[in-house]
Deep mutational scan, measured.
Amino acid sequence: MSIQHFRVALIPFFAAFCLPVFAHPETLVKVKDAEDQLGARVGYIELDLNSGKILESFRPEERFPMMSTFKVLLCGAVLSRVDAGQEQLGRRIHYSQNDLVEYSPVTEKHLTDGMTVRELCSAAITMSDNTAANLLLTTIGGPKELTAFLHNMGDHVTRLDRWEPELNEAIPNDERDTTMPAAMATTLRKLLTGELLTLASRQQLIDWMEADKVAGPLLRSALPAGWFIADKSGAGERGSRGIIAALGPDGKPSRIVVIYTTGSQATMDERNRQIAEIGASLIKHW
């Protein structure tokens, strides 16, 4: 067993022997301040990774656009098919120029040779490549099948209805392509620590998230040296922004954090800054 596999296998073990965790309302004060600064709703939840206990939450059962955070769930569904012998990570998928959609920095470079399922998941999570996500959605049967996968996990809230990039439209009061912070946090925890996926697939999923290259201005910008984070960000229309993450000190994750916002007129930089400040408060009061 590799060191990384050992780390993920012992996530519940280490967490069980940690000192009790206590909620700190100071972080919620910052979440509410972010709402004021952005002029928009902000949803927040913080779960203990081992027990699933909610440590703090704000608007945990209000719907927010998922945006690209759905790509972690998508690759979880792909990995479940791999575990069941219905898919192979090494299978190569070929596609054409007509398949390319807006923001496809990886797939646009491989029109000639195609990409493997493993490479597509890596591109979808680490670079948020939209064509990679659409190609992977095709392998599982489309958005409705991802929703069905989530329902089978016990998540009857999260739903995907459309493809990239239309799913980022974020129309107010439109339930399409949305989740709730509580539902997303619980589902992410199941994917990373539950028995739904094999140990190898859980490790692969967290490795992809740990290698995320496009979430630097968010929670990662607030992390002290030595902290662990595996995350996936999302951005959408109407001032929408979000991030889902597993993080913790001492090089291992111990909490799940989900943050979503929508309806702001603020710039992307300002949305990023507010999420980073929430992260800084979380870490300060850990």
Score class of each variant (00 low, 15 high):
I140E: 07
I54S: 11
T186N: 15
R81Q: 07
G52D: 07
T186A: 13
T262V: 10
D177N: 04
Y44N: 00
S51L: 09
A235K: 10
S221W: 04
P143C: 07
L160H: 14
C75E: 01
A77C: 09
E195L: 01
E210M: 14
S128D: 00
A40M: 03
L28C: 03
G248P: 00
S233C: 03
S201G: 12
E270S: 05
A211W: 14
V31R: 01
T267Y: 03
W286F: 11
D212R: 11
A276S: 09
I259S: 07
G52W: 04
V42R: 00
H94I: 03
L28S: 04
Q274S: 10
L28P: 05
D207V: 07
L120V: 05
G263C: 13
I256P: 00
L192R: 01
I125Y: 00
T261K: 08
A182L: 11
K284H: 08
L49I: 15
L196P: 11
T186M: 08
D250N: 03
C121A: 06
P253Y: 03
E166H: 15
S122H: 06
V42C: 03
P217H: 11
E145S: 14
G52K: 04
L146Y: 05
G251K: 15
G242E: 01
G242F: 00
V117W: 07
P25M: 14
S104A: 09
I256R: 00
S281C: 13
E237P: 07
D83M: 04
E277P: 07
E169H: 05
G85T: 06
Q204E: 06
T262D: 09
V258Y: 01
T261I: 10
I229F: 13
L89G: 03
H285Y: 06
Y44W: 10
E270V: 02
H110A: 15
G194D: 09
D269G: 07
G279H: 04
P217V: 10
I283P: 02
I243E: 15
V29C: 12
H156R: 09
G251S: 13
D129M: 00
K284P: 07
F64L: 06
D113P: 04
E210Y: 14
T158H: 02
F149S: 07
A230K: 01
G248F: 02
S68Y: 00
E277Q: 11
E237R: 11
A215M: 15
V82P: 01
T126S: 06
G248I: 01
G52M: 10
N130S: 14
T178A: 04
R92W: 04
T198I: 08
L79E: 12
N134I: 09
S264G: 10
L74S: 11
H24R: 06
A183M: 09
D36P: 04
I93C: 15
K53N: 11
W286K: 02
L150I: 08
W227Y: 14
D99T: 03
T131L: 05
G236W: 02
A280N: 12
D212Y: 02
E270I: 01
G236C: 03
Q88G: 10
R63F: 05
F58E: 07
R41C: 09
L89D: 06
D174L: 14
N50G: 06
D99W: 07
W227R: 00
S104Q: 12
G76A: 06
E277M: 06
K71C: 00
L55S: 06
L223K: 15
L47F: 12
R59T: 13
L160I: 07
I275W: 15
N272A: 14
M67E: 13
T193K: 15
D33P: 01
R255M: 10
A123Y: 02
D36H: 03
M66W: 01
F70E: 15
L79P: 00
A133L: 00
L135C: 03
L47E: 10
P65Y: 14
I278F: 03
T112C: 13
M127K: 08
L150M: 15
F58R: 12
P60W: 09
N173Q: 13
R241S: 13
